[in-house]
């Protein structure tokens, strides 16, 4: 029973976030670094969206007449913005990765760093 209670959105998103951080620290592949950033972003979105939610509450969209509890719309609005930013930032990161790959012919941070300092 304790385990079931432990698996709530808050704990899951914190674990996901630090999984992403682990990927950033332990993986030298640039694409994997960008994927890890994506994981961190998903964790953040999960955390925000589940922040102000009761189980009985209705989504804050459409006709809300006669519904008593409505989920907090603010974090959801914020997360739409964050998803858009995330797309832009991931695209920028991947574009730069392509340039880097064309120049140095490697996907490895260490190898590129060594080639650069030569």
């Amino acid at each position: 029973m304790d385990l079931i209670e432990f698996i709530n959105s808050e704990n899951v998103s914190i674990i996901l976030f630090f999984l992403g951080v682990y990927g950033l620290i332990a993986r030298r592949n640039i694409v994997k670094s960008i994927i890890s950033l994506g994981i961190m972003q998903v964790a953040t979105i999960l955390y925000f969206v589940s922040a102000g939610v009761d189980e009985a509450s209705a989504p804050p969209i459409g006709d809300l007449n006669g519904i008593l509890t409505v989920a907090d719309p603010l974090p959801q609005a914020l997360m739409i913005t964050d998803i858009v930013i995330g797309i832009g930032v991931t695209a920028a990161g991947l574009t730069m990765f392509i340039h880097l790959y064309h120049r140095y012919g490697s996907t490895n941070w260490e190898k590129i760093r060594k080639k650069r300092s030569k």
């Binding site: 670094s33 930032v89 990161g93 730069m96 880097l100």
Partner: peptide
């Protein structure tokens, strides 16, 4: 600078 810019961004 491509390396510098990528590092900065990420």
């Amino acid at each position: 600078s491509i390396y510098d810019g990528t590092m900065y961004l990420l």
